[in-house]
Simulated scan of single mutants.
Amino acid sequence: MDSRQLTGVIDRFEGDLAVVLLEADGDVVDETTVERDELPEDAAHANAVLSVTLAEDTVLDVTYDDEETTQREQDARERFDRLAERPPSDENDS
Score class of each variant (00 low, 15 high):
Val59His: 03
Arg72His: 02
Thr70Val: 13
Val62Tyr: 03
Asp61Leu: 03
Arg72Gln: 12
Thr53Ile: 08
Ser51Trp: 03
Glu73His: 10
Thr63Trp: 01
Asn47Ser: 10
Leu50Glu: 05
Arg79Ile: 04
Thr53Leu: 11
Arg82Val: 05
Asp61Pro: 00
Glu85Phe: 06
His45Arg: 10
Thr63His: 04
Thr58Gly: 03
Thr70Cys: 03
Thr63Ser: 14
Leu50Arg: 06
Tyr64Glu: 05
Asp57Leu: 11
Asp61Asn: 09
Glu68Asn: 05
Arg82Gly: 09
Val62Met: 06
Leu83Tyr: 11
Thr58Ile: 10
Ala44Ser: 11
Thr53Arg: 14
Val52Thr: 05
Ala46Phe: 00
Val59Asp: 02
Arg77Thr: 14
Leu54Lys: 04
Val62Phe: 06
Leu50Phe: 07
Phe80Pro: 03
His45Asn: 04
Arg72Glu: 03
Phe80Trp: 15
Asn47His: 07
Leu54Met: 15
Gln71Glu: 15
Val59Lys: 03
Ala43Gln: 02
Thr58Trp: 09
Ala55Gln: 13
Thr63Val: 10
Leu54Cys: 02
Val52His: 08
His45Val: 00
Glu78Gly: 02
Leu83Pro: 02
Glu78His: 07
Ser51Ala: 14
Thr70Lys: 13
Gln71His: 12
Asn47Thr: 06
Val52Ile: 13
Val52Glu: 04
Asp61Phe: 01
Arg77Met: 11
Glu78Pro: 01
Leu60Ala: 02
Ala43Ser: 08
Arg72Ala: 01
Asp61Trp: 00
Gln74Ser: 14
Asp61Ala: 10
Leu54Phe: 03
Glu78Lys: 10
Ala84Glu: 15
Leu83Ile: 11
Glu73Ile: 01
Glu85Asn: 09
Leu60Met: 09
Ala84Trp: 11
Val52Asp: 04
Arg86Pro: 07
Val49Lys: 01
Ala55Trp: 01
Asp57Gln: 13
Leu60Cys: 02
Arg82His: 11
Tyr64Asp: 05
Arg79Phe: 04
Asp81Cys: 06
Leu50His: 04
Glu73Met: 08
Arg77His: 11
Glu56Leu: 09
Ala76Tyr: 01
Thr58Leu: 10
Asp75Gly: 07
Val62Ile: 09
Thr69His: 03
His45Tyr: 04
Glu73Gln: 13
Ala76Cys: 01
Gln74Gly: 08
Ser51Met: 07
Arg72Met: 04
Val59Leu: 02
Thr58Cys: 09
Asp75Glu: 15
Asp57Tyr: 09
Glu85Trp: 08
Ala84Gln: 14
Ser51Lys: 09
Glu67Phe: 07
Glu67Gln: 13
Val52Gln: 05
Val62Thr: 10
Glu67Leu: 11
Ala76Leu: 07
Asp65Val: 00
Phe80Glu: 15
Thr69Cys: 02
Val52Tyr: 06
Arg82Pro: 02
Gln71Ala: 14
Ala48Thr: 07
Leu60Ile: 05
Asp61Arg: 08
Asp75His: 12
Asn47Ala: 07
Ser51Leu: 08
Arg72Ile: 01
Asp75Thr: 09
Ala84Asn: 15
Phe80Met: 12
Ala46Leu: 01
Thr63Arg: 11
Glu85Lys: 15
Asp81Lys: 13
Ala55Ser: 12
Arg72Gly: 00
Leu50Lys: 05
Asn47Leu: 05
Ala46Ile: 06
Thr63Cys: 02
Asp65Arg: 10
Gln71Asp: 12
Glu85Gly: 08
Ala84Met: 15
